[in-house]
């Protein structure tokens, strides 16, 4: 079952991974990796929100909380998609 520790670990891992990718991407010729690194950092919180959704869904009778977590994540992913396409 998803716990608060899992959400915590996701946040930390996402940032460490993002930073690692950014530093690798600084090597000349590896610019796409640089952008993947930045995106990894930016998308770490909404990704952790997906775990928060699972945590809230399993631990609380009122599913409204879980729905909010999902909505928040959808807004952020949707915003990125919308702004990239326009």
């Amino acid at each position: 079952m998803t716990s608060l520790k899992d959400i915590s670990d996701t946040l930390k891992t996402g940032i460490v991974l993002g930073l690692a990718l950014i530093w690798i991407g600084l090597i000349p010729g590896l610019k796409p990796i640089l952008y993947v690194g930045i995106l990894t950092v930016i998308l770490t919180p909404p990704t952790a929100l997906l775990l928060a959704f699972h945590y809230l869904y399993k631990n609380y009778e009122n599913k409204v909380y879980a729905a909010f977590a999902l909505i928040d994540a959808a807004i952020i992913y949707g915003s990125l998609l919308y702004h990239m396409l326009h």
């Binding site: 930016i42 770490t44 919180p45 952020i76 915003s79 990125l80 702004h83």
Partner: peptide, 11 residues
């Protein structure tokens, strides 16, 4: 979470 949302626009 808030900063992530705003960053999507700047990115």
């Amino acid at each position: 979470i808030t900063a992530s949302a705003g960053s999507t626009v700047y990115f």
